[in-house]
Nucleic acid binder design. Structure first.
Lengths: 181, 181
DNA sequence: AAAAACATGTAAGCTGTTACATGATTGG
DNA sequence: CCAATCATGTAACAGCTTACATGTTTTT
């Protein structure tokens, strides 16, 4: 049972290559210099990830010989790569995503301009806000069910989660305003 | 160059065993039922992690034969385990931790009651708040330096990060009030 | 000419995920 | 007594981190 879809890092690379065809080194620099770094840009991760994408025919490398002695391999997404990327961007957001992969959701949002459809981004932000708020409520429920005698740390840690999720929700609702047609 | 210290999951297990000696199964249930789940409680992670802790003599297993046919192995932290756990709880918080391992910091906080020293928790929360705010300011700097022509998504994603870190900071400052002597 | 930084990667090892395996006990 | 669930794990595999390797330009 193989999981033939890219990892989050794979999608991040795909998205960057969608913006501009680049070499592995170019990509590493982007990861170093931007908050993208959260998705990990060590060479031991990027190069194998690129190779995987290439093997799945989602990207294609071409050798640039402008400097004969130092060839660079420039990767660009294939048609299949563009398609799978768009599918990832637009695919329905699950409740489990906000619980487990909220960073991936933020990455998806950051690349959402490729869809060029405000309606899609609106949908995305709306489900995001909905799921996030609903999860925050769940956490609040858990907080109320907290054993009264327990040390306060656990309670506060839980409150922290609630506050953070609320912040995500507020952000999403504010961001929505930017995607009215 | 070995990394003889436990992983985050290892520390989580150590902390739970510190609360109450338990079997692997007990621990799995805790992970399933609480927000602790964020630190991953699949059997394929927990059992090897327990074995590693045992090999490093940080926990000790003892077989419970109250049911002769179904022995359970109960683990409890050793002196060395308690020591390393406390060190982890109290160790100075780095800027990189709030950037990369904020969840681990929250876990540390959740277990901080074991130190039984409000001063230590106060220090922890204070550095946490400081580092978090300073990082939020960094992100705001990056936001200002954002290329004006760029699509709005990236900018909004960055803003989301800023808001979330601010929420962390507000929480920490509020939590501080609970640890005055 | 030496040092630094550019540019491209590989190898070993660890940790976690998914899926499976095994037998015991309890609920209906 | 049959199914569910309790209780304990193992095996295969994927992906990431750290550290290293190699040669090329540029800087000093």
């Amino acid at each position: 049972m193989k999981k033939n879809t890219p990892t989050v890092l794979g999608y991040a690379l795909l998205g960057l290559l969608h913006q501009e065809p680049s070499s592995g080194y170019d990509l590493r620099k982007i990861f170093e210099l931007t908050p993208m770094a959260h998705f990990s840009g060590s060479p031991g991760a990027i190069y194998p990830a690129l190779r995987r994408l290439e093997q799945q025919s989602l990207i294609l490398g071409s050798v640039d010989r402008t400097h004969a002695l130092r060839p660079r391999q420039i990767f660009r997404p294939t048609t299949a790569g563009k398609k799978i990327f768009r599918t990832w961007l637009a695919c329905k957001l699950q409740r489990s995503d906000v619980v487990w992969n909220i960073d991936e959701l933020k990455l998806r949002f950051a690349f959402h301009n490729f869809l060029n459809k405000n309606a899609a981004t609106r949908d995305f932000l709306l489900s995001f806000a909905t799921e996030v708020s609903s999860y925050a409520k769940d956490l609040q429920q858990q907080l109320r069910a907290f054993p009264p005698g327990a040390p306060i740390n656990g309670r506060l840690a839980l409150e922290s989660g609630i506050e953070v999720y609320k912040a995500h929700g507020r952000w999403a609702r504010k961001a929505l305003a930017h995607f009215v047609d």
